[in-house]
């Protein structure tokens, strides 16, 4: 007997409605934003290659953090501490260089700081079972406090020209090093999420945690790993801030959690876990960067930019939620 009964709810053909639309909305939106600024800001030089490369430079830190955040959000968790980690890491990295430990010392100091905070976040979420929202809300404040305290809010200048070249202001030919950082990590993150068992288990954990556990996924280990990832990338982002600005400073990364989460959600990663996309995240991040850039050129100040970013997050989640119901 063939198991074909017409009235049984058949698996729908890969549904083209809604679901896919939601996956691609960020690309349309990005193109729309580009076109809008190109026309309205054509006299201010928005579309010049100098300005476009500038957007990439300004976006690199957000992009790196957003790549890691994609993994965290795909497991159904959240990390609000990334901006604060970037601040502390920029300072620890700058202090290490100032103390004569060189570029490697700075790298270890900055990235190590991020990993330590990531480990604390991860352990509190997995071992103490505190919701990640609360854990990282706490560490966001505590780490920011540490960043202000470590030099008594004084910036730490970095005079190592090589560091500043590699981690910020350098160009190789016409290509900014920050673009290279972004590209390399985008490729790594994409392969990790799509092509490795780690990525698959991240998506499984976010899709249905108990089912994942029953299938042999060590969900706690996966969650710990994703918080280490945001710690690592936020640490690196802190160094990129330091390299670009030639200093470590407690105010770096302020409000970045908003941009980072907006980029990820806008890109099509589900805030409810289980669905994640790296390409979407990068486009989302570039879009946030482009909007920031355009608004600055238009003459809006930081406060107005924050309002617009906040609205974008809410709209992105609202769209995502609507599509989820289908």
């Amino acid at each position: 007997m063939q198991s074909k009964v017409s009235s049984v709810q058949k698996p729908a053909a890969p549904s083209l409605k809604g679901f896919e639309w939601r996956n691609y909305i960020v690309y349309f939106a990005f193109v729309g934003v580009l076109i809008y600024f190109s026309i309205s800001l054509s006299d201010e030089g928005f579309l010049t290659s100098a300005n476009l490369l500038n957007i990439v430079r300004q976006t690199a830190t957000i992009s790196l953090m957003a790549l890691a955040m994609t993994f965290v959000i795909s497991t159904g968790e959240i990390d609000l501490s990334v901006g604060s980690i970037a601040a502390l890491s920029s300072l620890v990295g700058a202090l290490a260089i100032q103390a004569g430990y060189g570029i490697i010392g700075g790298l270890i100091g900055g990235v190590g700081t991020g990993l330590v905070v990531g480990l604390i976040n991860g352990l509190l979420v997995t071992k103490v079972a505190i919701p990640s929202f609360l854990v990282t809300l706490g560490t966001m404040g505590a780490v920011k406090g540490a960043a202000m305290w470590v030099t008594d809010t004084a910036p730490v200048p970095i005079v190592d020209a090589n560091f500043n070249f590699i981690f910020g202001s350098g160009d190789i030919g016409p290509i900014p090093v920050l673009l290279i950082w972004t590209l390399v990590f985008t490729v790594i993150a994409h392969i990790l999420l799509r092509k490795t068992s780690f990525g698959r288990q991240v998506l499984a954990t976010g899709g249905n945690e108990s089912a994942a556990r029953f299938s042999g996924v060590k969900t706690m280990k996966i969650k710990l790993m994703v918080f280490l990832a945001t710690g690592l990338m936020a640490g690196l982002a802190g160094l990129l801030y330091a390299g670009r600005m030639n200093a470590g400073r407690f105010s770096f990364g302020e409000g970045d959690e908003l941009s980072v989460i907006a980029a990820v959600i806008l890109g099509g990663t589900s805030l409810f876990g289980g669905v994640g996309t790296i390409i979407g995240t990068i486009v989302g991040s570039l879009m946030i960067g482009t909007i920031n850039n355009g608004l600055i050129i238009m003459g809006l100040d930081v406060s107005q930019q924050m309002i617009i970013k906040g609205v974008i997050i809410i709209l992105a989640v609202a769209f995502g939620k609507k599509a989820m119901k289908r």
Binding site: R200, Q201, A204, G207
Partner: peptide, 29 residues
């Protein structure tokens, strides 16, 4: 189990072989 032990956001194949996927020579799925 009736319906709670699958991951809705993955495909049928991905669910069936979750954590038991075959790897390519360079360790990818």
């Amino acid at each position: 189990f009736q319906e709670f032990s699958l991951i809705p956001t993955l495909t049928v194949a991905q669910n069936i072989y979750l954590t038991r996927e075959k790897k390519t020579s360079i360790g990818l799925l």
